[in-house]
């Protein structure tokens, strides 16, 4: 079994309220999984828990990442082990230039991989190249992290970081929200460029639109804190046509095993 990520019966609460009621998911190396679901179904909670954000109580279950117990790792350890989260709401850090921030990050990750740190010149070269892939002006490197970036710029910046840090598992948390069709295509082409047999993606989205451009291997439907249905990419189209309500009608017993 070449699973990069295994989630077993994950139950998570926030401020005493259970959000995830037992999520099971397996992602194999090289696969792109889409997780779809209506607002409040727990999509972003799942992303946050995988990345190690504070404030989430794990009630039950386990998460294995490359065979390691992910839930016991610090956020930076997860990042250094190749787990990347593209944030739904990227944070502004005033005064810290993108260049400083990303060189520090990249060199930490390189260190963990046993690679030499990059000097500023080598870093700039690779950063500029990756920025051009997603159409970001190299001048952004001298700006504060996400500082006075537009919504679309922030999202493209997340994908640029994905390109730069070359993770093994990338989680995209509603990266498509608030993007026009052109920006969406740029984001998708960045992701597609990174697809390889060694790299997996979990694409969290509310709409099917993004999946026209990032074609998933597997689609899961997260509904009320559970994965209620899994299928091929055609499942996404079905959801687009019929909405999420038809799942409600079919009730809770609709839990299917993931098709691994």
């Amino acid at each position: 079994m070449d699973n990069i990520l295994i989630i077993r019966n994950l139950r998570v609460a926030v401020e005493g309220k259970e959000i995830l009621h037992g999520v099971d998911l397996e992602v194999r190396r090289g696969e792109v999984h889409a997780i779809m679901g209506p607002n409040g179904s727990g999509k972003s909670t799942l992303a946050a828990v995988l990345a190690g954000r504070e404030g989430y109580d794990i009630l039950e279950g386990e998460v294995l990442y490359n065979g390691m117990n992910l839930l016991e790792m610090e956020p930076e350890e997860r990042a250094r082990a190749g787990l990347f989260l593209a944030f739904q709401y990227p944070v502004e850090i005033p005064g810290v230039t993108m260049a400083t921030f990303l060189r520090t990050a990249l060199n930490e990750i390189r260190k963990a991989r046993g690679q030499e740190p990059l000097d500023p010149i080598a870093f700039l070269k690779i950063a500029r190249e990756r920025m051009s892939w997603v159409g970001i002006d190299p001048e952004f490197l001298q700006r504060g992290v996400n500082e006075s970036f537009s919504g679309g710029e922030k999202k493209r910046n997340e994908i640029f970081q994905l390109l730069l840090l070359e993770p093994q598992l990338a989680i995209l948390d509603e990266t498509d929200s608030g993007l026009d069709i052109d920006a969406l295509k740029v984001v998708a082409s960045g992701v597609n460029r990174m697809r390889s047999p060694e790299r997996s993606f979990v694409v969290i989205t509310h709409y099917q639109r993004l999946l026209n451009y990032i074609v998933p291997d597997v689609v899961h439907v997260l509904y009320d804190g559970r994965i209620v249905r899994s299928g091929g990419k055609e499942l996404a189209l079905q959801l687009e046509e019929r909405g999420y309500d038809w799942l409600r009608a079919e009730g809770e017993e609709l839990v299917l095993p993931s098709i691994s």
Binding site: G52, R53, E76, R78, A79, V91, I93, A105, E108, L165
Partner: peptide, 17 residues
């Protein structure tokens, strides 16, 4: 959290910020 998700330790993140 944003810094740590990019692989930067908490101490370094504080210094950076």
């Amino acid at each position: 959290f944003y810094c740590r998700q990019r692989g930067i330790s908490e101490e370094d993140a504080v210094a950076l910020i």
